[in-house]
Amino acid sequence: MACETCRAFYPIVKDIVDRRPGKVQLVVRYTLFHAGADTAVKVLEAARLEDLFWPVNRALLNAQRTWGADHDPGPI
């Protein structure tokens, strides 16, 4: 979530999941390679528990330039 690659692949992965409902299972493994990733993981896990993973994931990626690895990490 904190790297440019995640943001670049998000639309492709989301499209695959959306076009194959019930047939594609996305497994997310959190790896804390970048600054700010620990906060993003906490936010995403809280969202997942509330069944809000995708909208929060989208919001994090859309705002990534303000908090991501090449910027000042911190909560949104």
Rank of each mutant, 00 (worst) to 15 (best):
G74I: 01
G74V: 08
H71P: 00
G22D: 05
R29Q: 10
V43N: 04
V28P: 02
A63D: 09
A59R: 09
L61D: 00
A40P: 00
I76S: 06
R29N: 11
P73D: 01
L60N: 00
G22N: 03
R29I: 07
V17M: 06
G68P: 02
P55V: 06
R48F: 08
V28C: 13
I76R: 06
W54S: 01
A35S: 14
F9L: 13
F9R: 10
A69K: 00
P75Q: 14
L26R: 03
W67Q: 07
L52S: 13
R7Q: 08
I12V: 11
G36K: 05
F9H: 15
K23E: 06
I12T: 15
G36T: 04
V56N: 10
R29H: 14
K42S: 15
L26S: 06
K42P: 00
R58V: 13
C6P: 02
D38Y: 09
R58M: 13
A2S: 09
G74F: 03
V13M: 08
G68H: 04
N57F: 06
R7M: 02
K14N: 10
G74K: 12
L26E: 04
V17Y: 04
L26G: 02
L26W: 01
R48K: 08
K14Y: 05
V56R: 11
A46R: 11
G68S: 08
F53N: 02
V17C: 02
A40I: 01
D51Y: 09
I16W: 14
F9Y: 15
K23R: 11
H71L: 08
H34P: 01
C3K: 00
R7F: 08
P73N: 09
Y10T: 11
L52M: 15
I76C: 03
R48N: 14
V41S: 02
K23G: 06
A40N: 07
A69L: 00
V41W: 03
A63S: 13
A47W: 06
C6A: 08
I12G: 05
P73R: 03
C6E: 04
C6D: 03
I16D: 15
E50K: 11
A40R: 04
H71A: 13
R48Y: 15
D70R: 08
A63M: 12
V13Y: 01
R7G: 04
Y10H: 12
A46W: 07
A8K: 13
G36Y: 00
C3W: 00
I16H: 14
K23W: 08
L26V: 12
Y10A: 15
I76A: 09
V27P: 03
R48C: 12
P11V: 02
R20Y: 12
F33H: 11
R48I: 11
E45P: 05
L60F: 02
V56P: 00
N62M: 05
I76F: 10
G22Y: 07
I16R: 10
V17R: 03
R58I: 05
F9T: 12
V28L: 10
A69H: 08
M1L: 08
A69P: 01
P55H: 08
T66F: 06
V27D: 15
E45H: 09
F9Q: 15
V13K: 06
V24W: 04
F33C: 07
T31D: 14
R7E: 05
A37P: 03
I12A: 12
T31L: 14
